[in-house]
């Protein structure tokens, strides 16, 4: 086994892993903390990618900048989706079956809509840093991976501070543990959940921009990420942001090594194997409560 090849694979895995963390943190909030199984999350990420793509090709704006501008729109979208979900399913006390079907339908409709509008061609963005890399001795750091990695880590730190230090953030953590107790403290759990869910969708905007910087995007690429993000979310321990980061880095490295030494066509199987292994051995995840 070639050492520098291995080292580059590990470094690339860590960079990709940080990006996976950005993709997953939305799910960690919605699924892990709010118990809303939003399997449509990858669709919102792809939507973010396409918005970055449109603005980038027409006005030449940086994809990351576009996604930051789009944050309020995604926040509003998330709030609207949660409102529909709440009124139609949570409030009625409907079984989770229909809620799941709702999100699955949403995932599907978004994908088909994107196919109808943009076709099934690969789309990519232009930015000055795409294509160049930093060379540190034998290690190569492509900026194409380094920029999304940095953005992801900044976003992650921001979320962690928000959830741990602010009142609303702590209320989000509380609603995941005991909504009734929250109500007794005169806080409306629905409002808190709406804010948290909207926030989780807002992260999809940034994650989407990162995705299209890393790789060209087609509407169906979201499906590849479903297995990945749920594997990370479960492995990290539901609702634990530090756990999510560790699990994402782990999966990134394992996938990268698999792709380097066994061929990229095997990489999608890694996440599923990891998911099944976690469910069988330690369902509460690495840092689960």
């Amino acid at each position: 086994m070639d050492f520098s090849l291995l080292m580059n694979a590990v470094i690339a895995g860590l960079l990709i892993g940080a990006f996976y963390a950005a993709v997953t943190c939305g799910i960690s909030i919605s699924f892990g903390m709010l118990d809303v199984v939003n399997i449509a999350h990858p669709a919102f990420i792809i939507l973010g990618s396409y918005i970055a793509y449109i603005v980038n090709t027409h006005y030449g704006l940086d994809p990351i900048l576009v996604s930051i501008i789009a944050l309020p729109a995604f926040y509003a979208l998330g709030a609207a989706v949660y409102q529909i979900f709440y009124v139609s399913f949570e409030k009625r006390g409907q079984d989770s079956l229909r809620g799941l079907a709702f999100f699955f339908g949403l995932l599907f409709v978004t994908e088909v809509f994107l196919v109808l509008v943009f076709g099934v061609d690969y789309r990519s963005v232009d930015a000055v840093y795409i294509g160049s890399s930093l060379h540190l001795g034998p290690v190569e750091l492509p900026l194409r991976l380094l920029v999304p990695c940095t953005v992801s880590l900044v976003m992650f730190a921001g979320l962690q501070v928000f959830l741990g230090r602010t009142f609303v953030g702590r209320a989000v953590m509380a609603v995941s543990q005991d909504p009734l107790a929250l109500r007794l403290m005169a806080v409306d759990p629905t409002r808190i959940k709406r804010i948290a869910f909207a926030l989780s969708i807002a992260t999809a905007s940034l994650a989407g921009a990162c995705l299209i910087i890393i790789q060209p995007v087609i509407p169906s690429v979201g499906r590849d990420y479903i297995g990945r993000i749920f594997a990370i979310c479960v492995l990290g321990g539901l609702g634990s942001l530090p756990g999510t980061l560790i699990a994402a880095l782990l999966l990134g490295v394992i996938e990268s090594i698999t792709a380097t030494f066994y061929g990229p066509s095997w990489a999608p199987a890694v996440s599923f194997g990891l998911l099944l292994l976690t469910l069988a051995v330690r369902p509460s995840g690495l840092l689960g409560r």
Binding site: V37, I39, S96, L100, R223, D224, I226, G227, F230, A231, V234, G263, S265, W266, P268, A269, S271, F272, G273, L275, L276, L279, P283
Partner: peptide, 22 residues
């Protein structure tokens, strides 16, 4: 919990496809 089964089946299709492709 039931939802884990749902997620596992979602990923199952992706993995089976990987196996078949290879």
């Amino acid at each position: 919990r039931g939802v884990f089964f749902a997620i596992a089946t979602l990923a199952l299709a992706v993995v089976l496809q990987t196996l078949i492709v290879n």
